[in-house]
């Protein structure tokens, strides 16, 4: 796998000495993307696959994302795994608000992405109505491989962000919220 490290921060100490020239964005994003601490928002069946990803066979630790933290304060990527009901939606949004910037959201599974097979009075039809979602993962439930793929795509996305600009401007990630009900 060619990472941003090799491309952007290409560095050989024999030739270049102990100094690295790179853009600040590349470094910040490299650091951020390789230490994603997910907040497992395990709501329903998909959470079981999420556990599977964390456990022995699929082992998400290989991608530097095994530090699952249930405290929103300590985590920077919320994996919404499961059906978000209207009753739960409030809690999901409040937990998201407690997460520190920068933060990302992964909607895992059909339910979190669109309401899935639960077209009913109690279910929020897609978590993107209350949160800005970065990566949607299809499946009911998505296979563990699909979740890993989604997380790698999130890493790719993080590497393209304009982090320095955000830090300088002293402002959080512009809210990518949908405007109003659809």
């Amino acid at each position: 796998m060619t990472t941003a490290t090799e491309q952007d921060v290409g560095y050989n100490s024999k030739i270049e000495g102990n100094v690295i020239f790179s853009s600040a964005d590349a470094i910040i994003n490299w650091v951020r993307s390789n230490s994603v601490w997910p907040m497992p928002m395990g709501l329903a069946c998909c959470a079981i696959e999420l556990m599977g990803v964390g456990a022995s066979k699929f082992d998400i630790a290989r991608f530097g994302m095994e530090v699952m933290r249930f405290s929103p304060r300590q985590s920077d990527c919320m994996i919404v795994a499961g059906t978000v009901t209207y009753k739960m939606a409030e809690a999901v949004r409040r937990i998201y608000d407690q997460m520190a910037e920068p933060k990302w959201v992964v909607a895992m599974g059909a339910c979190a992405s669109s309401g899935g097979m639960y077209r009913s009075y109690a279910v929020l039809q897609g978590v993107d109505r209350i949160l800005p979602v970065d990566v949607y993962i299809s499946g009911c439930p998505p296979r563990p491989e699909a979740l890993i793929d989604g997380m790698l795509r999130l890493q790719e996305k993080i590497r393209t962000e304009k982090s320095m600009w955000q830090i300088k401007a002293g402002r959080p990630n512009p809210e990518k919220l949908p405007t109003g009900p659809r």
């Binding site: 409030e90 919220l177 009900p181």
Partner: peptide, 17 residues
Amino acid sequence: FQAADVAERTGVRIQPA
């Protein structure tokens, strides 16, 4: 939506599925 402040920030409503 039952929580007015969340509804205000996100524009979420309870809608027919």
